[in-house]
């Protein structure tokens, strides 16, 4: 049975929105991670981080395929053929890489947020979605381990590393609220039993888990941002950094969208 056939038309549309949001998050962070290839602090990390980037992009591909099965839009078209205003990713993920400390702070905190929504999806009553969530979680488990390993090392790596990682956390935490931007269709997914709670309501749990993880590294959890200052990438409120990213990422595909690679 195709994904979402047991849902109402409204439920299927909401599920499509949620899948697109997760796919765009994974694609955009995967692309940013891939930009570190050949620039990471050591060659072993070049390989490791490039591999993580591939994982994220393959997770995006899984979600785009599910959308394809529901809506009939090709996954390359979905990934490369949309303008910035139609991308649903959180703004945090489109930001330029900056230094290694910012990259690691974002990598770790985004994966924490991702784990929260995957935990929820892994309990979903739609078997296809549950299987996809479980498969992705196996790899994300490793990503978290990798992020934590670096976070600990940067926090203990002397005063420069420490101050850079703390500064990065201030930026990342401020913008992480955008990962939990409330969306109108969330309630439909809850009502149809796809997920137990609105994804935007996972924010407090996210802050608690992040706070605990940072405390073990002796790092300070930056304060929450006031409502009204939240980034709104999920509804198209992106930064120029995303337009540039899309320009680069889709360059080859746009040269001949009908080509078979």
């Amino acid at each position: 049975m195709p994904l979402g056939d047991e849902l109402s038309a409204e439920g299927r549309a909401a599920l499509g929105e949620y899948l697109l949001l997760m796919a765009d998050d994974e694609l955009v962070i995967g692309h940013r991670d891939s930009e570190w290839c050949a620039f990471a602090p050591l060659i072993e990390e070049d390989v490791a981080f490039a591999s993580i980037a591939q994982d994220e992009i393959s997770h995006a591909a899984l979600f785009y395929e599910l959308i394809e099965s529901m809506r009939g839009l090709g996954r390359d078209q979905l990934a490369f053929g949309r303008p910035a205003s139609e991308m649903r990713n959180a703004t945090l993920l489109e930001r330029e890489n900056g230094d290694w400390a910012f990259t690691i702070a974002r990598h770790y905190l985004y994966d924490l947020a991702d784990e929260l929504r995957l935990e929820q999806l892994a309990k979903c009553h739609l078997p296809t979605l549950r299987a996809v969530a479980e498969r992705i979680r196996r790899e994300e488990h490793y990503h978290l381990e990798h992020g934590a390993m670096w976070l600990v090392r940067l926090s203990r790596g002397g005063s420069e590393a420490r101050s850079r990682v703390q500064a990065a956390l201030e930026r990342v935490v401020r913008e992480s609220r955008g990962l939990f931007q409330p969306m109108a269709w969330e309630q439909i997914l809850v009502a149809e039993g796809v997920i137990a709670a609105r994804p935007s309501h996972l924010y407090q749990e996210f802050r608690e888990r992040a706070g605990t993880a940072l405390a073990t590294c002796g790092l300070r959890m930056p304060p929450d941002v006031p409502p009204g200052e939240h980034p709104r990438g999920r509804t198209g409120g992106h930064t120029p950094e995303l337009r540039e990213l899309l320009q680069t990422m889709g360059e080859v595909w746009r040269s001949d969208p009908t080509a078979s690679w």
């Binding site: 050591l42 072993e44 990390e45 993580i52 990798h146 390993m149 090392r153």
Partner: peptide, 20 residues
């Protein structure tokens, strides 16, 4: 073989380098 700052980092990196 690989280079790492310590054994824990080596374990994390080895998973990506050799389990790919």
């Amino acid at each position: 073989s690989l280079r790492a700052a310590d054994a824990q980092m080596a374990v994390v990196l080895a998973q990506e380098l050799f389990c790919r």
